[in-house]
Design a protein around this nucleic acid. Sequence first.
RNA 1: UCCUCAGUAGCUCAGUGGUAGAGCGAUCGACUGUUAAUCGAUUGGUCACUGGUUCGAAUCCAGUCUGGGGAGCCA
Length: 463
Amino acid sequence: MTVRRVSEILRQGQPDEAVQIQGWVRTKRESKGFAFVEVNDGSSMAGLQVVLHQELPNYSETLRRLSTGASVEVSGQLVASQGKGQRIELKAEAVTIFGEADSETYPLQKKRHSFEFLRSQGHLRARTNTFGAVFRVRNACATAIHQFFQERGFLWVHAPIITASDCEGAGEMFAVTSLDLKRVPLTESQAVDYSQDFFGRPAFLTVSGQLEAEIMAMAFTNVYTFGPTFRAENSNTSRHLAEFWMVEPEMAFCDLEGDMDLAEAFLKYVFSYVLTHCAEDMEFFNARIDDSVLSTAQNIIDNEFQRITYTEAIDLLEKADRTFEYPVSWGLDLQSEHERYLAEELFKRPTIVTHYPTQIKAFYMRVDDDEKTVRAMDVLAPKIGEIIGGSQREERLDVLERRIQQQGLDPAVYWWYLDLRRYGTVPHAGFGLGFERLVQFMTGMGNIRDVIPFPRSPLSAEF
RNA sequence: UCCUCAGUAGCUCAGUGGUAGAGCGAUCGACUGUUAAUCGAUUGGUCACUGGUUCGAAUCCAGUCUGGGGAGCCA
């Protein structure tokens, strides 16, 4: 007999069908002469209710071993459920226990656990309702992202994980080395002699695949990266990870408007996909985690994003009928409280802020004609803050060289990046999206460590 | 890195100087349809660590470690 997935049986199973399932016991409820065991195989939020009657061979022995967490294979016949709460259930005829889970020591109990505790049980937390839903939604988000770009003819680019250039200076990088840290070779001037290291030069884990994506966009027109990135910042917040996944589309022959249009269409697509493919999980988040999750998702799908310039944002913040902890003034970057005020309180929907002051943005952003601002855009999401950051890129060689020098960077390091402007340059634009922040936004989960299977953060790399 | 709160039973917490507590879980028992099952009983402790104050410290003080929330940095 073929083993069937629980989700499929719950959807399509009919009474009198003989079926076999495999999974893990979530709960067991015993009565005199029979017992109910809920078996979950991760395919859906709901498990299949298995009914064991005392006529079953080794009934009491089997029942004793079937505690929460045990792995099991059950075959039997589907029957219409007499009880409320499920359409069908499985009347067990044969039960095989692969592995018991000692109920005295199994960490997951038949009760709610705090997310803090479950983080310490990273090897088991995927077996809980919440994390099951999170990782199914995460998977659906990833699928939707690929589908969105593939439908539009974007090429998926595999950006390197190891890089030799600190390209955009986006924070601290993790060093990659094969040198013996106990006996690091030194040059005559007592600096580390990287010529003896694996790559013959300093190497790091990537902080962004954007510059590599630009290379590929200059050949394939529309591309995107989707992969892990790393930041060695000592950030201890609910929105930062040392290892996280990033999505970075890059489009040749595209300006800031086209970039914004893509970002908006992208978010609408992903939210719509997840609502239809993970309806049960999304209902769960709405009921148990954040009761605004469904309405927020619908809001994003149905309404146009608010678009304002940085200058307009400053004006609105100065007029705001409330006081901010940090000053609001043209030329200063927006603080978290400012971003949240705009997206959460004022507009109550995703808000795109554009044309930031030149001096607070990266060197590769296209300088506007008045030189005061650049063609940058941030998509601010309620509760999460900046979820997307993007820009039209500077395609003019002379301007780019000047900007690199102004920011105290060495143009020689960027020789290949400058070559792209030297040979066949085109206006182009792209953005970066923090994948975990998208999943956070989607699910309402408060801490980013709870939307990635194995979170990496300062002092934390267990599992 | 800064601010702030916390660390007591397997989990969630109460306990503000004088014999260590509750709920849940787990275990055992009862129950012929449960679904956070219900009812009864039982079980459960290096009070984060180190040092100090005191006749006496979970409680007061100092330091350290770990975690939560917020901020900065950013995605």
